[in-house]
């Protein structure tokens, strides 16, 4: 029954392999990220987006309504817009269509990007006035 003599070290090696794998720091990091993302306590009610968004919208509308009914406050929106067009600073540059201009990311906010096989780069471009976000992985040899 020679084969059964050697089962012991093989099964011991098998157990050791699994034990070493689960003790890897990456497994712990993945676990923590997983729990934090999906199974952590939600914020207090009044800090949640479901409350804050309409509440703040309502507050803004109330503010504008106040201004509407009392037009003697110092803010004069119409006059300021005319000033911007005269200076031609922000609006014209964004609409230039130059794809090398980096514009502020309004549409997409990249919270995290990683790659195990290459270098990730994030580009914010303008395409006919529309902001476009591109995430590109350079794996050596591929140029966009």
């Amino acid at each position: 029954m020679r084969e059964y003599k050697f089962e012991k070290p093989v099964l011991k090696a098998y157990r050791s392999w699994i034990e070493s794998e689960i003790r890897r720091p990456e497994v712990r990091r993945e676990k923590d990220a997983f729990v934090k993302t999906y199974f952590s306590k939600p914020p207090l009610f009044f800090l949640r987006p479901a409350f804050l968004a309409p509440a703040s919208s309502f507050a803004v509308m109330m503010f504008i309504a106040v201004l509407w009914y009392w037009p003697t406050t110092s803010l004069k929106p119409g006059r300021e817009i005319q000033m911007m067009h005269r200076e031609g600073a922000v609006v014209e540059n964004v609409a230039s269509g130059d794809s090398d201009v980096v514009v502020s990311p309004g549409m997409v906010d990249v919270k995290r990007v990683a790659s195990r096989v290459g270098t990730p780069m994030v580009y914010y471009k303008s395409n006919h006035g529309q902001p476009i976000t591109i995430i590109w992985i350079f794996t050596g040899g591929n140029t966009p």
Binding site: M107, V108, D109, V113, A114, S115, R116, I134, G141, N142
Partner: peptide, 23 residues
């Protein structure tokens, strides 16, 4: 089993994003 891109994005709704590069 090889991870080419792993990204977390906050996208405006509606919005568009391009992911590229895997050969």
């Amino acid at each position: 089993g090889r991870q080419y891109v792993d990204t977390v994005l906050s996208i405006l709704n509606p919005g568009v994003v391009f992911l590229g590069g895997p050969p």
